[in-house]
Design a protein around this nucleic acid. Structure first.
Length: 292
DNA sequence: TACTCGTGGTT
DNA sequence: TAACCAAGAGT
């Protein structure tokens, strides 16, 4: 049983060495800051959409201090259409914290990373692992799906990370830090490129022979319903409309906002919420803009 | 714990 | 084509 994980490690890492995408936040030239910016942007956002924005951010703000010296509004504007714009505020706040608490250098310790705005367990582990070569369990949606299928034999993981799931990931983590870091990024890449949610390419999978889900005949998901994300008519859609407006105009009037979202109660609620979040400021009565 | 928070490509 | 999905975090 001891040799089982190592066979798995070797197969996945060898596959990664031959099939990994070349991404700007990987490789030797990538700074910890570049890794950190990518991780915040990649939270719930596909790689293809992150690539151009990440390049713009790193060109304009190559260090945390560069971003910390900017206004939050400019960070939100440069965030573009990545979605969840509060992440731009959190990244900006994290840059300030890094300057104040860590001398302008992205901290290497998991605990210091976790204490930064917008950095949760996944992101702290990912930065510590990818940027600093440390040994951490990195549990993102890709890794969770890969391990659930290969080890547990089910199609999809539970809605939230379970204790058993973390135990599996911990047991499989290679002892050597450098190998663990490669294992982490390799399992993520396998989930992103081969062991995908909808149509897994098992014919291209380096561990297909060992996959419990495949061995069981691909039983369909049998867990609690995975709730979808409602969109039409939600506050999120309303907020998105308003933010799109202020990104494209220096300032917007009440009439413009009303044209973008006719429902009065919801419009007012979302405007207030955006101001409360710090994504918007009311410059004068009936006039809004990105925060200066 | 369960819910909220954007956006757009894919099937 | 409506539904699903995408390197989660905060509350």
């Amino acid at each position: 049983m001891d040799s089982y994980p190592r066979v798995l490690h070797d197969a996945v890492i060898d596959w990664y060495d031959n099939h990994a995408r070349e991404l700007p936040w990987r490789g030797l030239e990538a700074t910890p800051w570049s890794v950190m910016v990518s991780e915040l942007m990649l939270q719930q956002t596909p790689v293809a959409r992150v690539l151009p924005v990440h390049a713009l951010w790193l060109e304009r703000w190559p260090t945390p201090a560069d971003l910390a010296g900017e206004s939050t509004g400019e960070a939100v504007r440069m965030w573009g259409r990545l979605g969840y714009p509060r992440r731009a505020l959190r990244l900006h706040a994290a840059a300030i914290a890094i300057v104040e608490r860590h001398g302008g250098e992205v901290p290497a310790s998991y605990d210091d990373l976790l204490a930064l705005p917008g950095v949760g367990d996944y992101t702290a582990s990912a930065i510590a692992s990818f940027a600093f070569g440390q040994r951490h369990v990195v549990l993102d949606t890709n890794v969770r799906r890969v391990l659930t299928r290969v080890v547990t034999g089910e199609e999809f993981p539970a809605p939230a990370v379970t204790r058993a799931e973390r135990d599996v990931a911990t047991a499989l983590l290679p002892d050597d830090p450098a190998t663990a870091a490669t294992w982490a990024v390799a399992t993520m890449e396998l989930g992103a490129l081969v062991c995908t949610a909808r149509q897994p390419a098992c014919h291209a999978c380096p561990v297909a022979e060992a996959c419990a889900w495949r061995g069981a005949g691909f039983p369909a998901y049998d867990g609690p319903p995975r709730r979808g994300q409602a969109w039409a008519g939600t506050d999120r859609q309303c907020r998105g409309r308003i933010m799109a407006l202020v990104r494209e105009n220096d300032a917007v009037t009440a009439a413009q906002v009303e044209a973008a979202w006719p429902t009065t109660d919801q419009r007012e609620r979302c405007l207030a919420g955006l101001v409360d979040d710090g994504l918007l400021t009311q410059t004068t009565p009936g006039r809004w803009a990105l925060p200066g």
